[in-house]
Design a protein around this nucleic acid. Structure first.
Lengths: 145, 145
DNA sequence: AGTAGTTGTATTCATTTTCATATAAAAATG
DNA sequence: CATTTTTATATGAAAATGAATACAACTACT
């Protein structure tokens, strides 16, 4: 006889939202203790892989609303963490790169994030970790057509 | 040679945040088209499993900030979707139950949510679905000590 | 080229969220 | 039991968010 779950415990969207929250919770707290905002972290982490994205491209990674990201980017430029460049091939667009200060910060945060992930997944074997991440990667690919 | 991923594509927190976002995106839009807020949906869905939770208990499910939930609950009571009862055994607490109107609404939304999940997981076999959900359930259990 | 539709970003303003704190009740302590 | 600490909820001021919109630049079509 199959185990019976309550609605939310058998509802994929809830399981994802909850695990997402729980996985990030402590690390976000850790960031805030250091005086940084979670939004800054998400933006910098997204740029760390691929610098020079346009605002729209960056937004597809950080998953904010466009006006929210627009304003954050301006603020982060004022704080010398990012640089906004005009895109010469498309004059509507702005390209965003990380400043040297931003690079120093994100290098530090990336290391902390990896360390935190290691503690979160401490009880998972390498194989289990890859299985979990692999399933999520496939789900993401599947959903963003 | 193992495939190499960019930071965010190998970072569990990001994979969860992104898949969570993608899975819920269309359904949230669907809710908003009908004139409801996503927050209302989350609150009602959480109560649908277990009515009569206190605000704190409910908040552990919906994952808001406490003042946010306090205000939403008051608003939803004014709109006759919920009822706030004094808890007689703990006079600080309030217990929250769904009103008849709320029940009608949540029944409708639950059906829509299930239908949406079915389309999201259409390409997954029953076995794969259980594997995915099972891994997430274990992750959640693992993280909430 | 001229027009119509689309895309990329910024801005405004109303709403929502949150931090900090208040308050009252319960629990723990000595 | 009196006192301190913790817990549950509410509230007000400040900050963040987002829907709507504006505008400029690009694309597609005739």
């Amino acid at each position: 006889m199959p185990k019976s779950f309550s609605f939310i415990d058998d509802y994929l969207a809830y399981l994802l939202a909850r695990s997402s929250y729980l996985v990030s919770e402590q690390f976000h707290h850790q960031i805030q203790i250091q005086g940084w905002s979670v939004n800054y972290w998400r933006i910098l982490a997204s740029l760390s892989d691929e610098d020079g994205l346009t605002l729209t491209q960056l937004n597809q990674r950080v998953l904010f609303k466009q006006p929210t990201l627009s304003k954050l980017i301006v603020k982060m430029e004022q704080e010398k963490l990012l640089i906004r460049h005009k895109d010469e091939t498309d004059k509507r667009a702005i390209k965003i790169t990380i400043s040297p200060q931003g690079r120093t910060l994100v290098a530090d945060l990336l290391a902390q994030a990896k360390a935190h992930e290691n503690t979160v997944l401490a009880d998972y074997s390498q194989k289990q970790q890859q299985l979990l991440k692999g399933m999520l990667r496939r789900l993401v690919l599947h959903l963003q057509e």
